[in-house]
Design a protein around this nucleic acid. Structure first.
Lengths: 206, 206
DNA sequence: CTCGCATACGAACGATCGTTCACCACCGAA
DNA sequence: TTCGGTGGTGAACGATCGTTCGTATGCGAG
């Protein structure tokens, strides 16, 4: 297992129970939602005491912010890496971006679910930072689509909105994906890539 | 304003504050989430007392269930009506279904948001009933897609999964739609219909 | 008129919430 | 050997939670 597909989102940080606490928070928020999970739940999952959580995180909402920041960083890193290895044409760049996105969902489904469902409970600077990171990710897709529309690869009449439609359909995969489902990792990625290209009205092999 | 586009999801029920309470619950759950909103919040929004809520609903989770049931009923009724008026060919049936869905989102955005985000907090029979209704809605779309694939209208190689992709992209619209946005109701519906047809790989006017 | 039910209310219950506190064990540096 | 910082604990704080209770008011049926 390499660095791009860890079993847990947060690897050991070299600081006591920090990684265990962050991963436990992710699981707890994923299972019961931010307001449905208590700090006691997080502590129990992390195998430590309630009060010890506050040696690592100043509050529950900052705990959510920290977890979401790490999840988003990992997704952004994967997208960057995938696009660095991709070619120059819009179709293959989009394909690689979609594949990287799907693989992130498969590897970190809970992180993706929490990311989409619980961001809205953040406030102030924490929320602004997350939204900015998410906008940056969206811009990556918009740029690819714009490039494809410019050179005639994509025929969609609504480039920016179509890019968003692709992204939302993609992140919704986290809501229904099951590891024991009919499709393998690769098949799922391939399927979603085809949906994305079709939605953008790229000519497809029929 | 006709019966298909009410200002609030629940019209007067002829029973005291019932409608006000259900609509207030919808707003409260939409604004703060199921666990983030308290029964006191609901009471305040409904303009009544906390204890009076329990003259209408036996528990908070049943309140959520009741609200979601009514939302889903309204959506299903609109879909049925739209398809009754539609033609026989798969493309126009899909178009009408998508348009009805989008119009429901525009009219009852909060209901759609709560429906997708908070169903998971239901348990037992309440959850099962909702899931069954949702599966029925999905089956409507799957049937249309299957018909279109059978007669050659749609070229997608993954009919059922594509139908689900269309549906999830569609319901995600509730997450970002803004009434003061760039697109009108009709334009938004038209756009989403085009996305759906493209995703299903229907031949489009280019 | 009066009885019964529907509708409504404030106050309170026990439970659980996020957070803080005082305290303890360990350990590398001075 | 002392000492400050790091990682850890159980107990407790005040606040808020969902829910219940006792009671009051108004109104249609008998």
């Amino acid at each position: 297992m390499n660095a791009r597909s860890p079993a847990t989102l947060v690897a050991d940080t070299g600081r006591g129970n920090e990684a265990a606490i962050l991963n436990a928070a992710l699981d707890a928020f994923g299972a019961q939602g931010f307001h449905g999970a208590s700090m006691r739940d997080v502590a129990k999952r992390a195998g430590t005491s309630l009060s010890n959580l506050y040696n690592y995180v100043p509050s529950k909402s900052r705990l959510l912010a920290e977890v979401l920041r790490r999840a988003n960083d990992e997704l952004a890193a994967r997208l960057r890496a995938a696009l660095a290895d991709a070619g120059d044409d819009a179709a293959s760049r989009l394909r690689e971006a979609v594949r990287a996105y799907v693989r992130f969902i498969v590897d970190h489904q809970v992180a993706m679910v929490v990311s989409t469902n619980e961001v809205r409970y953040l406030t102030g600077a924490d929320r602004a930072a997350l939204v900015a990171e998410r906008d940056a990710t969206q811009a990556v897709f918009e740029d690819i689509v714009a490039q494809g529309v410019a050179d005639g690869t994509f025929a969609t009449p609504y480039p920016d909105d179509a890019a968003r439609a692709v992204l939302t359909a993609l992140s919704a995969v986290a809501g229904w994906y099951r590891a024991d489902g009919r499709l393998s990792r690769g098949q799922l990625a391939e399927q979603q890539a085809r949906y994305a290209l079709a939605l953008l009205e790229a000519p497809l092999a029929r």
